[in-house]
């Protein structure tokens, strides 16, 4: 097992990199949706991947959620998978806003599109700051409107070691749109990430 601990300074550094990357993703999303997106400081948490599904099962209670996954591969062993979790209360409003029709196929297509915009912009912004560059797998839906999504999340998380949870709360002009983003990375990527953070910190 890789030691997953991050120091306070490393954590602050990662939080700031996430903020900058998330700012770029929000800007992209705002342009995509044609509305202003109120950006809050995204709370990050580093947890063992194995504890992840439990956390989200209790946070989402009995509600169903849709999970969209996107794999990414960078240089020097920095790779992983992002998972976007959507609670579906506001999906209809967003579909209307974007001109998707109101059926299950369109909903899946829309969530895949939004995930793609958010995660690739976010990850590109993060990669740039880490002086790395990522390539991406096509987004895929792991679970659609599923009450038992936590089982699928557990199955996916099993392959990884560390999870970086990023709570995203997007407040659009007239309604709120909540989703969660999880970055799952393997042990060797954790070491790589920590080394890169230390290099960045050493510069300042």
């Amino acid at each position: 097992m890789t030691e997953l601990h991050f120091t306070d300074v490393q954590r602050d550094c990662l939080q700031e990199l996430v903020n900058v990357a998330m700012g770029q993703a929000s800007d992209k999303l705002a342009r995509y949706l044609g509305t202003f997106v109120h950006l809050q400081v995204p709370a990050i948490a580093l947890v063992e991947a194995a504890l992840l599904s439990q956390h989200f099962a209790s946070r989402y209670q009995q509600q169903s959620a849709t999970l969209v996954s996107l794999g990414f591969f960078g240089d020097q062993g920095l790779r992983g998978e992002t998972i976007m979790l959507y609670q579906l209360a506001n999906v209809g409003v967003i579909a209307q806003l974007l001109g998707y029709s109101d059926d299950a196929v369109s909903e899946a297509e829309m969530l895949t599109d939004i995930s793609s915009v958010l995660t690739t912009t976010f990850l590109s912004g993060l990669a740039e700051q880490l002086e790395n560059s990522f390539s991406y797998a096509a987004p895929r839906i792991l679970s659609s409107r599923d009450q038992y999504f936590a089982d699928k999340l557990a199955y996916t998380a099993e392959q990884w070691q560390l999870a970086l949870q990023v709570d995203i709360r997007y407040q659009l002009t007239d309604y709120s749109f909540n989703c969660d983003m999880i970055l799952l990375i393997p042990g060797e990527a954790v070491l790589r990430l920590r080394q890169t953070l230390d290099n960045i910190l050493a510069d300042f």
Binding site: V20, A21, M22, S26, D27, F36, L39
Partner: peptide, 9 residues
């Protein structure tokens, strides 16, 4: 100096 780079902001 901000990460929130939306034109409206």
């Amino acid at each position: 100096v901000s990460a929130d780079i939306q034109p409206e902001m």
